[in-house]
Design a binder for these strands. Structure first.
Lengths: 233, 233
DNA sequence: GTGGCCTAGTGGCTGAGCCACTTGGAGCGA
DNA sequence: TCGCTCCAAGTGGCTCAGCCACTAGGCCAC
């Protein structure tokens, strides 16, 4: 109660940086794909430390408004730094089933191609991602990052730049579904088993088996997501 | 295209910290209000720098899952660190009109009381927040922080711990509406004018005028929000 | 008991620095 | 001239060490 009368939250510096950044983007008329000033430069011109600028950028990153490329600069994903209104979120969510259908089509083929075309190095990459996932899960994590690496490695091993490009366009939504799916009870271990099956088929050079294993995996993910989202209309 | 086949995003360290943190909370059975380990401690036990831990905490902060009190530790807001599913977001959103009604009731009375009870120091605080808001707007910002400080200062000046507690329970949703409202074109300046009117009434010790000015202001905010959210059902 | 004070604990922020990765151009060879 | 390699500059990722501001809790004086 003594605390109730005081200001409710202290403003954090990164929040002010955030606001300045948003204002800058709209004033400078930056569009999707445009490059933001370098972190060191921003820190200098805003008169704050680089760490604070970093915190602001991290926030924009998790909100999907910005993409930071290691060594290559930070880029706008949309034409603005404003957070997506709830309405659009819902809209996007309604299109998720479509995305998961598309994912099934693409990844099934990718697994098939990977089984045929993978080099030994690429197979090792897939194996590494599987190990990483296992470590994550053993360490109490969900294996999110390992899952991501696995699918990226399979995509690379398929040697189809066109399919890879398609995957890229739905990568964001897949990430979303991955995060949610892997948080379900017992999910990480089941996921690990399914990925292992995919890996083994690819290692054995068996395209049909790889495709089947991948299809089963993607459908597992999709089913959960489709079930827990029942639009009221 | 050469880039299309490579892993799509590199994992950031703060994301892994995030995952560990979530796992920790669920394993340790922490509940809303419980204290997280200190940043230095987390950094040490996770084997990462404090800056990375900080980035993860900032993410949790903007997602409203955690509250960091300067000098007082970091606390869970809910029973979990998982992000709120879209469904609940929509649910909460539907209750927003109610919140804004409640806000009108509370803040109108708070303004009235502040006009009667404010000390000179408190009046100065309100004045300061107004100046801060003006600076923000001149500097290209939206005046979000100044707005927050203004209402906090008025609440303090009203000397009603009960009303202040009520305000606290809807503070989160008010913040949300503030962020969105102030981003509308021309909004910051109009907001500044309305706040100035409230300030002047409080300074003059005119409770009726203060209440009226506050009511007008809150209704402006509410109207915009109510208009742009039309549930489909 | 009450109130003020002091100190340890903790978050906020900074500055300097190293490493990893990207990019673009210089320079070399065919 | 074209194309390739390689390197240096630019930039993000992360760490370390440290200072300051604020909070909380215990101690002490009254």
């Amino acid at each position: 109660m003594s605390e109730a009368l005081r200001p409710m939250v202290k403003s954090r510096l990164y929040e002010q940086v955030l606001e300045r950044l948003r204002a800058y983007v709209s004033e400078a008329g930056l569009k999707a794909g445009d490059k933001l000033p370098a972190e060191r430069e921003l820190a200098a011109s805003l008169g704050v430390s680089r760490a604070s600028v970093k915190q602001a950028i991290v926030v924009l990153e998790v909100q999907g408004l910005v993409e930071a490329r290691h060594g290559g600069g930070t880029y706008l994903v949309r034409d603005t730094l404003d957070v997506e209104p709830v309405e659009q979120l819902v809209e996007r969510r309604k299109r998720l089933p479509e995305v998961l259908e598309a994912r099934e089509a693409l990844e099934t083929k990718l697994a098939e191609l990977a089984a045929e075309r993978r080099t030994d190095d690429e197979l090792a990459d897939i194996r590494d991602s599987l190990d990483f996932m296992r470590d994550e899960i053993i360490g109490g994590g969900f294996g999110v990052e390992g899952d991501r690496r696995f699918h990226a490695a399979v995509t690379a091993a398929a040697h189809s730049s066109l399919l890879a490009d398609f995957m890229k366009t739905i990568a964001g939504q897949i990430t979303e579904s991955r995060n949610e799916s892997l948080r379900q009870p017992g999910r990480p271990h089941r996921s690990l088993a399914q990925h292992t099956a995919i890996y083994e088929a690819i290692a054995a050079g068996d395209p049909k088996k790889a495709a089947a294993a991948m299809r089963k995996h993607v459908r597992t993910v999709a089913k959960v997501r489709l079930l827990d989202w029942v639009p009221e209309d």
